[in-house]
């Protein structure tokens, strides 16, 4: 299966003329095949399977039975679905509104040199190292109305009595904040890295023009970070739309169905009510919504057109 160099070097590609002079062997497709096949089986095939399974009844045991469009018509009758979509949209919006400005400011702050900054940033990244389970259980304990810090945190969420997780609206707000606490460090890292890539000459020129700190931030830093803002936003939106682990651990969707967001609704339908066929239909809905939203964001912001914003610098 060895592919000889001569094979690929036929019509000399620009800048690849050296290929022609050499007769060395190139790796064949066999080298990449295990990884491709593996990924195909455990990630791509499931994506196709989930569409197929959405047309079946399956309890998780035995063989899935053909169900036609039953699961899909059930979507329109599912009373919980409407509320879970609404909750997901709220959670995603709040998560974006909280995470984007905070991680941007923190990332820009952390990008500048200085010992104090380095030490503090090191602490700021710690939530990123914790598992979903650890974050969730830690916050569940913190939000406990009897022994935790609920009395301290409660007033921030409008719950002076400390009843946060027992109240529908506050529970959802608390989930958005916990998820933000968990993921802000990641986005902060993205912004930090991107800020360090901004050419220093831009700031020097602005300083000569007499631009102050605030002007520089809005005239240089922010526009230069727009790529990162778009990609971070896509990650936040798709992430909070599909993410349910922390919520499952803290509230299990409660009180009632007050925090039962769409992916959690899917999980509970599939793995607690054992209606895997219907859960698959919900999963397809998730994939479609996530893809549509991320394409929407990219389109809306004209991401591809600004691709070369910094070329030639």
């Amino acid at each position: 299966m060895k592919v000889r160099a001569a094979q690929g070097a036929g019509p000399a590609r620009a800048g690849r003329t050296r290929d022609r002079s050499s007769v060395h062997q190139r790796p064949g497709v066999i080298w990449a095949l295990p990884a491709f096949a593996y990924f195909l089986v455990f990630a791509v095939v499931p994506l196709i399977l989930v569409v197929g399974l959405s047309f079946t009844h399956w309890s998780g045991l035995g063989t899935p039975r053909w169900a036609g469009a039953a699961n899909w018509s059930r979507l329109t009758e599912d009373a919980t679905l409407g509320s879970s979509i609404k909750l997901s949209l709220i959670l995603t919006t709040v998560a974006w509104l909280v995470q984007t400005p905070l991680s941007l400011l923190l990332g820009v702050w952390a990008a500048a040199p200085g010992r104090g900054r380095a030490v503090l940033s090191a602490v700021f990244f710690v939530p990123l190292l914790m598992s979903n389970a650890a974050v969730a259980l830690l916050w569940q304990s913190l939000l406990d109305p009897n022994f935790g810090l609920a009395e301290l945190i409660g007033p921030l969420l409008g719950a002076s009595d400390g009843n946060i997780l027992g109240d529908p609206d506050r529970a959802l707000a608390a989930m958005a904040l916990v998820v933000s606490w968990q993921f802000i460090p990641f986005h902060m890292l993205l912004y930090q890295a991107a800020t360090r890539q901004i050419p220093q000459s831009l700031y020097e020129a602005a300083a000569i023009d007499g631009a102050g700190r605030v002007r520089q931030f809005f005239a240089i830093t922010l526009p230069q970070l727009r790529h990162t803002i778009v990609s971070s936003s896509v990650l936040i939106v798709v992430g909070s739309l599909t993410y349910f682990e922390t919520i499952l651990l803290i509230t299990e969707g409660g009180p009632g169905t007050a925090t039962r967001v769409l992916p959690l609704h899917m999980y509970i339908t599939g793995f607690q009510a054992f209606e895997m066929g219907y859960a698959s239909a919900l999963a397809v809905l998730l994939v479609v919504a996530g893809t549509a939203l991320s394409i929407g964001i990219v389109r809306m912001t004209g991401y591809w057109r600004m691709d070369s914003s910094r070329e030639g610098m």
Binding site: Q7, F36, T242, F271
Partner: peptide, 30 residues
């Protein structure tokens, strides 16, 4: 490598980056 399949496979992986694991847990369980 220069094999055309390599490029196809690589594109598959890049697109696969966007597959949320939550959405495929039912078929993975299967």
């Amino acid at each position: 490598g220069r094999h055309p399949l390599i490029r196809i496979g690589f594109s598959m992986m890049l697109l696969g980056l966007a597959i949320p694991s939550q959405a495929v847990i039912v078929p993975i369980y299967l």
